[in-house]
Design a protein around this nucleic acid. Structure first.
Length: 269
DNA sequence: ATGGTCGCGGTGCGA
C-alpha cells in the first residue's frame, strides 16, 4: 500500500485579504497540507470557514496582529502541534505539525524567516542581525534528534542560496536575501541537519528557479527579476519519498496577488 | 535610471 502526500507552501501576504486565492489553490490543486506565511492576522480573525468547507478541517495557526504569522491547513488530522519562539521575541514565525504518512509520523515545519531589512550589515541594521541570529538558531536546533526522523521543512526562508536562485547573481551579491553571509549560513543550516533541498532535485542547480517577484516591477513577467525565497526541504529519512514539485507561477498573475507564489511538493511512500 | 509597490493600521513601518 502506498500513501501520497501533497504539501504546499505559500507566503500569502495577508490571509484575510487573499482568502479567496487560498481557496482557489485548494480547489484547483487539492494539496493535502498547505503551509501559509505572513498571514498578518490574529488567530481569532483567521478566515477558516471557507477552508473548512473545502475539506481542510484541521487548522493550526500562530498569528499576531499586523505582522508575520504562520498557519497550516490540512485534510489529515494532526497528532501534534508545536511552535518555537526563535530569538525569544514573541514573533509568530514557526509552526510544526505532526501527521501520519506511509505508516510513520512526519513532522512538517513551517517557517517564516525574518526578511532582514535593507542594509546587509548586522552592526548597523538590527533587522539583519535578527535574521542571522534566527538562522543560527535554526542551525543549532534542526539537527541531531530533530532531523533523525521523517520530516519536511517548508516556508519563506527569505534567502536565495544558489546563483541560479536569483535573476542576477552578480547584481544581488550585496542585496539582502543573496549576500554571502546569508547564503553560507542557510547552507550550514541545511548541512547541519542533512536536509535535502528537494526543489533542486526536480529543477537542476544550473537552471533559474524563482518563487517571488517584487511588487515594484512594472511588469513582473516581462522583467522576470525573481528570486527563490521559498523552500521545501526533507530529512534523509524522508527524501527517498520525494517525487516532484511545481512552482505555481501563474498565481503571481492572479487578481490582487501575493508577491510570492505557491510551491507544491509531492511525496509517496 | 538606483526608482519602484504593497498591507496593515491609522499617516509610519515592515517587506
Amino acid at each position: 500500500m502506498t500513501d501520497a502526500l501533497k504539501v504546499a507552501t505559500w507566503n500569502i501576504n495577508s490571509v484575510r485579504l487573499r482568502a479567496g486565492l487560498v481557496e482557489r489553490l485548494l480547489t484547483e490543486e487539492a494539496p493535502d497540507v498547505v503551509c501559509l506565511q505572513e498571514t498578518k492576522c490574529p488567530d481569532a480573525a483567521f478566515p477558516e470557514k471557507g477552508f473548512r468547507q473545502l475539506g481542510y478541517e484541521h487548522i493550526a495557526m500562530k498569528g499576531q496582529k499586523g505582522y508575520h504569522g504562520v498557519a497550516v491547513l490540512s485534510k489529515r488530522p494532526f497528532t501534534a502541534v508545536d511552535t518555537r519562539d526563535f530569538c525569544e521575541k514573541g514573533d509568530a514565525r514557526h509552526l510544526a505539525v505532526t501527521l501520519p504518512f506511509a505508516g510513520a509520523d512526519v513532522v512538517i515545519h513551517n517557517f517564516y524567516v525574518p526578511s532582514g531589512g535593507d542594509e546587509p550589515d548586522p552592526a548597523v541594521n538590527d533587522k539583519f542581525a535578527h535574521k542571522l541570529d534566527f538562522l543560527a538558531e535554526m542551525k543549532d536546533w534542526l539537527r541531531g534528534e530533530e532531523t533523525a526522523r521523517p520530516a519536511i521543512l517548508v516556508g519563506d526562508l527569505n534567502v536565495a542560496p544558489l546563483e541560479e536562485d536569483v535573476w542576477s547573481h552578480k547584481q544581488l551579491l550585496k542585496v539582502v536575501s543573496h549576500t554571502p553571509v546569508e547564503t553560507d549560513l542557510l547552507k550550514e543550516v541545511q548541512a547541519a541537519g542533512g536536509w535535502v533541498d528537494v526543489m533542486r532535485k526536480t529543477v537542476p542547480e544550473t537552471e533559474k528557479l524563482y518563487t517571488w517577484w517584487s511588487y515594484r516591477a512594472r511588469d513582473w513577467q516581462t522583467s522576470n527579476r525573481g528570486r527563490r525565497l521559498d523552500h521545501v526541504w526533507a530529512t534523509p529519512a524522508l527524501a527517498p519519498a520525494y517525487r516532484d514539485m511545481r512552482v505555481v507561477a501563474d498565481a503571481r498573475g492572479w487578481e490582487k496577488p501575493s508577491d510570492h507564489v505557491p510551491v507544491i511538493a509531492r511525496f509517496e511512500g
